[in-house]
Every structure is written in C-alpha cells, then in structure tokens.
C-alpha cells in the first residue's frame, strides 16, 4: 500500500476541549500521527498534525475533522513545506 506523509493544518474555534474533539476524530482514523503542534490564539486553535498513512485514509481523516462544527478549515499540506515550522 502506498503511504504518504502529510500535515493537516487545522483551524478551529475554542480551546483544549475543542482540541480534544479534534484528537478524538484523529484517534479513530487509520492514519498514524507523527507529530503535533498547537497554538491557542484567544479562542482560536491552530494545529499542525503530521500524519502518515494511505492517501485516501488521510483525506478521510481530514474530512472527519472538518465535519466537527467548531472546525473552520482543514488543509492538507505536503510535509516538506512545513518542515521549518515543525522543527
């Protein structure tokens, strides 16, 4: 099976409670989490989640996270572009 590494860039409303819900969606997907960085700016969450898995599975996880009401956007980013940020 083809595996790729991607970064999910998630913008959401809220704080830790809402991040927990994002994590719950992530936990139940089949993509493996390789890294996680979060910033809280007021009532906004910015999360960069590095995942590894089948491309379709990663897309599904992105859709599942986006289906949460508090999530404003989910972007799938080729991981190389974000290397400097994640380091």
């Amino acid at each position: 099976m083809v595996r790729v590494e991607r970064v999910l860039s998630v913008r959401a409303f809220g704080g830790l409670d809402q991040l927990l819900r994002v994590v719950n969606a992530l936990r139940r997907g089949r993509a493996e989490v390789r890294g996680f960085e979060v910033r809280f700016i007021g009532k906004e969450i910015l999360a960069f989640i590095r995942v590894d898995g089948g491309p379709e599975e990663i897309k599904w996880v992105a859709k599942k996270i986006y289906s949460l009401p508090e999530v404003k956007s989910v972007d799938l980013i080729e991981d190389k572009l974000l290397e400097p940020i994640l380091r």
Binding site: G14, D17, L20, R28
Partner: peptide, 14 residues
Amino acid sequence: MVGIAAPVTKFAYQ
C-alpha cells in the same frame, strides 16, 4: 462531561 461526551456527540461545550 465534555471529556466523556466529546467522541459521542456532534457538539459538546462547557
């Protein structure tokens, strides 16, 4: 409750 209900609700907020 938010921790417990988070995975089984469409929305949970304290």
